[in-house]
Design a protein around this nucleic acid. Sequence first.
DNA 1: AATACTTATAGTCTTTTTGACTATTACTTG
DNA 2: CAAGTAATAGTCAAAAAGACTATAAGTATT
Lengths: 225, 225
Amino acid sequence: MEQQIMDDLSIDCVIFGFTDELKVLLVKHAEGISKGKWALPGGWITYDESLDQAANRILHLLTGVDNLFLEQLKAFGSVERFPSKRVVTVAYYTLIRDSDYDVVAGFTASDAQWFSINEIPDLPYDHQEILQYAWDQLKHKVKQEPIGFNLLPKKFTLLQLQNLYESILQIKLDKPNFRRKMLGMKLLIDCDEKQDNVSHRAAKLYQFNEEVYQSLKEHKFVLDW
Amino acid sequence: MEQQIMDDLSIDCVIFGFTDELKVLLVKHAEGISKGKWALPGGWITYDESLDQAANRILHLLTGVDNLFLEQLKAFGSVERFPSKRVVTVAYYTLIRDSDYDVVAGFTASDAQWFSINEIPDLPYDHQEILQYAWDQLKHKVKQEPIGFNLLPKKFTLLQLQNLYESILQIKLDKPNFRRKMLGMKLLIDCDEKQDNVSHRAAKLYQFNEEVYQSLKEHKFVLDW
DNA sequence: AATACTTATAGTCTTTTTGACTATTACTTG
DNA sequence: CAAGTAATAGTCAAAAAGACTATAAGTATT
């Protein structure tokens, strides 16, 4: 049972992953004009689904990754962005803890893999532009609201959190100042536990204060790095 | 000579205007399902134009307002947003000095008018949602980069600039603190002139330092109101 | 001409927030 | 037990924010 597609409107997804470094999820096309090339997971919208639904469905079909909160990035619609015909694409993006997901290529993808943000292959169409736009957006977003809830283990150290910021923003932060700032906004709860199995002084473990986290998402949270 | 349209993809424009208060430009539909209703200026994209071009063309046809820098807002694509068939719309927005433009209804619009942001009539489809989203976006943007260049007279007073912010953000600001902040970032050049024809102490006139203005657009500019 | 209004502009004071550091502490491993 | 590594505490000065008060410079009114 195939749904009817809007054949001039597509979806592309920029899925950022983080564990130790920032990555992007790409799929290898099994068919079509760009067969054999790595590209952003994308596909056609059907008439009976919203854009948000389409993004999730397509991502799931191609990569096995499901149930994400995908945020709309932008519609890309220059006339020549797609070679064979006029196609406008609506791009989505999100950031997840990649180790939480099993990636399984499917549908029109012969493979699906995470790529380090610094080792992205040549991408077809305007996917390079979309990716860059998404990364800029991610950087911006990260300064406007707290992140980390679904990106770090339940209990984590301040350095892990700092590494997260440093990976995304690609900057170096001062450790004492970072901890002062983070602790200052009451976002973290001291777990009264320490790291285990580390070959140096064990750091305290913290977890997010979910209430503060949510309220900071809506109210003031500004990092001016 | 009519171009072929993508009949499932439309554009809608949220044009904010400011002189003494914040306004929105609406058009009255002369035909179609929503005939006689006020709505956001919008229309269909043709196959030979980019989204950005389409937005400007449509706005010009309907309202006579031309040559704006329209910023893409978001694609709205829920299945039932448009009654008769599936239509995804890409919304654009901008903020202009409304007194600089002549509004002339045309094309499928029988009328075009500015409406105070606080006196918006009932809008069809999801236009109310789009407008609200655009206003939220505008508020956000205004805190991230300087505004006023094309919104105020060449020479203006600090109170005029403050009123601009207060109108958009719908908040009240402290006068001395506002002037300290603004003067502190070297954004304004003292014109060594005063207001004329006012029935109270005349305020100094300032103009923007174009270089600083541009550099603040790209670098740090944070208002935490 | 004196006074009452307005609005502009200058300045004060206290509290927070940065940024750039230094110092010390705790733990692991050779 | 010393060396290495990272965690954590703390200092200090500069900058910024917030909440005000005070004064100045005009107009409009009595």
